[in-house]
Design a protein around this nucleic acid. Sequence first.
DNA 1: TACGTTTCTGATACTTGATATCAATACGCG
DNA 2: CGCGTATTGATATCAAGTATCAGAAACGTA
Lengths: 151, 151
Amino acid sequence: MPSDTVIPIEIDLITALEDRGLRKTATRSTIVARIETANDAFTAEQLCRDLPGVGRATVYRTIRHLVDAGALCKLPILDGAPMYSIARVEHHHHTICSKCGTIGEFRDSTVERVMRSLGKEIDGDIVGHRMEIFITCNRCLGISKSGASIA
Amino acid sequence: MPSDTVIPIEIDLITALEDRGLRKTATRSTIVARIETANDAFTAEQLCRDLPGVGRATVYRTIRHLVDAGALCKLPILDGAPMYSIARVEHHHHTICSKCGTIGEFRDSTVERVMRSLGKEIDGDIVGHRMEIFITCNRCLGISKSGASIA
DNA sequence: TACGTTTCTGATACTTGATATCAATACGCG
DNA sequence: CGCGTATTGATATCAAGTATCAGAAACGTA
Ligand SMILES: [Mn+2]
Ligand SMILES: [Mn+2]
Ligand SMILES: [Zn+2]
Ligand SMILES: [Zn+2]
């Protein structure tokens, strides 16, 4: 059962923008390329730093467009700027490594089932939910086990 | 089975500060009184507005102390300043009304059970979790039903 | 391809939330 | 009291993010 052929759900961010009637511009392609190649959660300011030629306003605007399009998740960080990651699945939740901040995604049907059953206990109508699991990621576990430091 | 006698878990915020070795000052008593009497979720800026005589720095510092003491929950709001509420139970989750922003608290053992079972599926060690349920609260439902507007 | 309309861009100024500084003040212990 | 330390709050500063708006780029149309 060779499963080397992983088929990623390829999401073309620039297409997501065009689908919303937005023009395909050089600047947007630059921003989107950075997001897609790094393929990791990021903050708006990180993007600004990585793309010195691009104005901050445009970075923030483009991110907002992508979030509105549902192509990016916006994840609140308790003590800092929100992080963004490409939305690979319709509805999902996030893991956040408390050590290094790395963000992962997961789906779990039991979580959704519990949500539905909570409807009876909760006052009002449930319109959505959010959930984050804080972890120590495998890499950080490895680091702490070996006692080695990266920085 | 008359259950009119609800015994609230009375939490004395000023005591929570003293227990941490902090002094009981007039300013801290003022801040804490505002939090305890309003008895509702709030932002730091709201507190500053409600307490014109108190310096912003002190408001922010006191809130931080209370969060560190575990006496206040700090709840990230995706598009805005974090909100704080008195922590009445050890571990719990929040409901947020999408219309009016009112925050509620709840505990549910099935949520915690699901969390534990997720440990097998998640890479790394789970060290915590957070969950918010977005609702339309009963008051907002009533308002929208009657079609009346408050403002 | 040239044109005209509309969208987009980015420098700049501004807003908001929050922290750093530090001289003056208040606690609280003896 | 009286002293040493913690606290306070005006102020400056920082950080994230938005509003403005003149010039540039996109793109439907001819
Ligand atoms: Mn979910
Ligand atoms: Mn929980
Ligand atoms: Zn990690
Ligand atoms: Zn409501």
